[in-house]
C-alpha cells in the first residue's frame, strides 16, 4: 500500500498550488484550471481514504465531484465567453464593476 502520508502530501500540494492559482492569477482561464486542480486535490483525498477504509462512499463522492467539475467548468467557460465579448480580454483585473 501507498502510505497515506504521501497521498495526503500530494493532495495538499495540489490544493496549495490550486489555491495559489485562484488567488494570484490574472487570466480567468488559469483561474478555472486552478479550480479544477483544487477539485482534483479533493478527489485524490477521497480516493485515498476510501482505499484505506475499504469503503465505497469516497469513490461515489469522487464520481460526483468529477461530474460537478465538468459542469462547473462548462458554465464557467460560458460566462467567460460572454465576459470576453464585453471586455475583449480574459484578464480578471479588467472585470471590476462589482466594486464600491
Amino acid at each position: 500500500m501507498i502510505p497515506i502520508a504521501w497521498t495526503l502530501t500530494l493532495s495538499s500540494t495540489l490544493l496549495a498550488v490550486g489555491i495559489f492559482g485562484l488567488l494570484a492569477q490574472r487570466s480567468a482561464l488559469r483561474i478555472l484550471v486552478s479550480v479544477e486542480l483544487v477539485l482534483n486535490a479533493a478527489n485524490i483525498n477521497f480516493v485515498a481514504f476510501a482505499n484505506i477504509r475499504g469503503q465505497s462512499q469516497g469513490l461515489v463522492f469522487t464520481l460526483f465531484v468529477i461530474a460537478l467539475a465538468a459542469a462547473e467548468a462548462a458554465v464557467g467557460l460560458a460566462i467567460l465567453l460572454h465576459a470576453y465579448r464585453h471586455v475583449r480580454s480574459v484578464d480578471v483585473n479588467k472585470m471590476t464593476l462589482l466594486r464600491w
Partner: peptide, 17 residues
Amino acid sequence: TRRWQDGKLTTYMASVA
C-alpha cells in the same frame, strides 16, 4: 474600509479563503 471592495475577483476569493 471600502477599499476592500475593489471589484477584483481574486481579492474577493482571498477574502473568502
